[in-house]
Each structure stands twice: as structure tokens, then as C-alpha cells.
């Protein structure tokens, strides 16, 4: 799980992909996913995955990107097995190569999905993401909540670690006993964590008050996203390709191997 999360964590970089407007990147990611939704054929999905790999190479995040996809292997295997079993449970089905193949296709499609998400998050700062949300007219409250979550998650993780350390130093053994007694053993961790979060949110509320939060209805922004030529170019190329994909799927008679 942590490998997947790391795959979704931004790494600073200065490549063309990093510099693209996050909205454009988001659209490209979504278009790639939509294409993967339209097609189930292994060839097309392979083309999508290869495209994603190329993008990851341009953004110089290939190894991290590959690791994310690799880290998602258990999830992909799970989807494969679930699909397979589901198909088996249908009346008149038996284990045959066809059903295995179909389940594999679905799992493969998931790879394309995750890979697309991963590139987006690996090359977009949470801040840019926030700015994109603002531009997309998402109310500031939500953007603020999103940014705060990113800002305070590492702090809370640290806090959790220090609570665990303190309680272990008082002889608490989390690994001991059966499942019920184990759950009970988490109380000494959870109660202090909750108290901590409550106290912190109170202090945050106070600090935010002092910083005039919510003072005016229309907030201004120091930094704002602006679409540049390269953004429009990237956007139009990907939209064109997507329309082509739609055309091939639904309006042409091209047979996909």
C-alpha cells in the first residue's frame, strides 16, 4: 500500500511535463483512462501503457512510476481473481481459456488506469492541484481542506509515531493476544491521538482566525494558473487523438487485432 501512496507523491522536477498546466495534465490523464474504458483489446491497452511510459520517461519519473505500477500488483491480481471467480459463478460457465483471458484483460486495463493516475500525481504539486481546483470553481473551503490534509498528514503521522513510542515504553505490546484483546490494546494509542487532533484543530482554528480566514467572500490569489501556448498545444493534440480513438471505436469498421 505504501508503495502505491509513494507513487502518488509529488517529486519536484523541471521537465516539460512538470511545467504543463495541471488542468491539462488532468484532462490528459482522464482521456487516457477514457480510452482504456472504450477498448478492452490487449493491443490498444498496450499502446496506452506504452504512451504513459513514454510520458513518464520524458518527465524523468520512470522508475518511480514503474514502482507504483509494480506496487499495485496485489490489487491487480485481486481484480483478476475476483473477475475470474465472478465469471465462474455465472450460470453455464466453466473454467476455460476464454474466461481467464477476459479476466486478464480487465486486470490489464486497471494497469493503464493506475499508470495514468500515477504520472499525474508524480508531476503535479499539491499546490498546483489546489490552484486547479480553484480555477475549476471548486469553493475555496474544499480546496483549503484538501491542502490542509496534505499539509498535516505527515505531522499527524509523526505524532502517531511518538504516541506509539511512548505507550510501548509503558509496556504496551500491540502484537500480543487474540484479535479482540488486540483491538483493546489500541485504545491507549487512539485516545491520545484523538485528544491531540482535537487540541491541534483548536489551535489551528485560532491561528486561522488571526489570519483573517473567511473575512471576505471573494478571496484573491497571489498565484493563478494561466494556460500558455504549450498547454493549448498539448491539450489540442490529446483531444484530437482521443476523438480519433472514439471515431475508430464507434464509427469506423477497422478491426482491432
Amino acid at each position: 500500500m505504501s508503495t502505491i501512496l509513494r507513487g502518488l507523491q509529488f517529486y519536484p522536477g523541471k521537465t516539460i511535463i512538470h511545467k504543463l498546466d495541471p488542468r491539462v495534465k488532468l484532462v490528459i490523464s482522464l482521456l487516457l483512462m477514457a480510452t482504456a474504458m472504450m477498448y478492452i483489446e490487449v493491443t490498444i491497452i498496450t499502446i496506452i501503457v506504452v504512451t504513459e511510459a513514454v510520458l513518464a520517461i520524458i518527465a524523468k519519473v520512470f522508475s518511480r512510476w514503474a514502482r507504483t505500477v509494480y506496487g499495485a500488483a496485489p490489487l491487480i491480481i485481486f481484480v483478476f481473481i475476483a473477475n475470474f471467480l465472478f465469471k465462474l459463478s455465472m450460470p453455464g460457465q466453466s473454467i476455460n481459456l476464454q474466461s481467464i483471458y477476459e479476466a486478464l484483460q480487465l486486470a490489464y486495463r486497471l494497469v493503464a488506469f493506475l499508470a495514468s493516475f500515477s504520472i499525474f500525481f508524480l508531476t503535479t504539486t499539491p499546490e498546483e492541484l489546489g490552484m486547479a481546483l480553484t480555477k475549476m470553481k471548486v469553493p475555496y473551503m474544499y480546496t483549503f481542506a484538501f491542502i490542509s490534509a496534505i499539509r498535516f498528514t505527515p505531522i499527524l503521522a509523526e505524532e502517531l509515531q511518538s504516541i506509539v513510542d511512548a505507550q510501548k515504553s509503558r509496556g504496551l505490546e500491540l502484537e500480543k493476544g487474540n484479535i479482540i484483546s488486540r483491538l483493546r490494546r489500541y485504545i491507549p494509542i487512539l485516545v491520545p491521538l484523538m485528544v491531540n487532533v482535537l487540541r491541534r484543530s483548536y489551535e489551528l482554528a485560532e491561528a486561522i482566525e488571526v489570519k483573517c480566514f473567511g473575512a471576505k467572500k471573494n478571496r484573491t490569489y497571489l498565484r493563478e494558473l494561466k494556460m500558455k501556448l504549450k498547454d493549448w498545444t498539448a491539450l489540442s493534440i490529446s483531444v484530437t487523438l482521443f476523438i480519433l480513438a472514439v471515431y475508430i471505436r464507434y464509427f469506423s469498421k477497422i478491426v482491432i487485432p
Partner: peptide, 23 residues
């Protein structure tokens, strides 16, 4: 508990943005 943004610059601008001060 007093820093809410993801960069120093954004944090220093935060209160001013809330007050709708021109960019």
C-alpha cells in the same frame, strides 16, 4: 499550527488573500 500552505510564499500571502487584497 500556524502554517497552512504548502510553500512559504503561499503562507505569507494567505492572510492577505483572505482579505481580498489586490494581487
Amino acid at each position: 499550527n500556524q502554517l497552512f500552505a504548502l510553500t512559504v510564499e503561499a503562507d505569507v500571502a494567505f492572510a492577505l488573500e483572505n482579505l481580498s487584497i489586490p494581487r
